[in-house]
């Protein structure tokens, strides 16, 4: 059985002072792994050894795509030339669809601009030329991961225990996730930005639909859907109607406020700081 911990420790050790780290502090050491689509076992082995994490290799695009439900890789490497009559570039859009958060790095032994340009246009994040060294491989994967993380974080709006992915239009909480329409997502995101403030319905209309005329009925239907989804996913967050004034997104009780605050304190390590201060007398 592959020992991820040992592999990652070694990876960190081999990276040392001269090479950048592959696994960032956000990565779970036990679950960091990569996927490689290449029919050359040498390349697959080199990637695994250089990165120091398990690398699952596939020689056919079909097999890789079939496994999309099973894996959440930290990076995907695709060779341009696969088996006879199969080109790695053709599969990039499908791979991107399966793993939108994982950087795709194309491997090639030809330094032709055509291949590199096509790879990037198809949705790859970077390319690497053979022969490649450990430091280049780690550096490219790490920086592309950071870029994707930054880009994706711009699409995330969170409030309480709810998180909205504006790109995928998914509202989620520890209880589950629900796909919502584009307009519902815009309404929720706007309410999050104005959370705690009563917002007039007319302002929501203007913000979400712009100059397009929308009936009150249509707006009410959308708000009804958003409210229903919020109720399904969270008992801590509510959209409250303030009659005659508008809507407000808020945490629905003081107890929930406290609970969420405590969760955040644990995450931030604030609790331990306060424990440490217990001995101090003023």
């Amino acid at each position: 059985m592959y020992d991820f911990k040992v592999a990652n420790t070694v990876a960190t050790a081999c990276i040392g002072d001269r090479l950048p780290r592959f696994a960032s502090s956000h990565d779970d050491i036990d679950t960091a792994y990569t996927l490689t689509l290449d029919d050359d076992p040498i390349v697959c082995k080199l990637i695994e050894e250089f990165l120091g994490v398990k690398n699952f290799s596939f020689s056919s695009a079909q097999d890789l795509l079939r496994s999309s439900e099973l894996f959440r890789p930290t990076g995907i490497f695709i060779d341009v030339h696969l088996a006879k009559n199969e080109c790695g570039l053709d599969v990039i859009p499908q791979v991107r669809k399966c793993w939108p958060d994982a950087p795709i790095i194309v491997i090639t032994s030809d330094d032709s601009n055509d291949h590199i340009g096509q790879a990037l246009a198809a949705g790859a994040n970077d390319f690497i030329l053979k022969p490649f060294g450990a430091s280049e491989l780690i550096a490219r994967l790490s920086s592309r991961r950071e870029e994707l993380k930054d880009r994706n974080s711009q699409w995330i709006v969170s409030y309480g225990d709810l998180e909205l992915d504006l790109q995928k239009k998914i509202l989620s909480s520890p209880l589950g996730q629900v796909y919502i329409s584009s307009k519902e997502a815009d309404i929720f995101a706007y309410l999050v930005r104005q959370s705690g403030i009563v917002v007039e319905k007319g302002i929501i209309k203007r913000h979400v639909w712009g100059s397009v005329k929308v009936s009150d009925n249509a707006l009410e239907r959308k708000i009804f859907e958003v409210r229903k989804t919020v109720r399904t996913l969270s008992s801590k967050v509510e959209i409250k109607t303030v009659y005659g004034k508008g809507l407000v997104l808020r945490l629905n009780s003081f107890a929930c406020d406290q609970e969420l605050l405590e969760d955040k304190e644990v995450l931030l390590g604030v609790s331990s700081l306060w424990e440490g201060r217990g001995d101090t007398t003023y």
């Binding site: 029919d39 050359d40 040498i42 390349v43 080199l46 060779d79 030339h81 032994s109 053979k130 022969p131 490649f132």
Partner: peptide, 9 residues
Amino acid sequence: HKMKGSCKS
């Protein structure tokens, strides 16, 4: 092509 890639690596 495949052999070339292995050789380069």
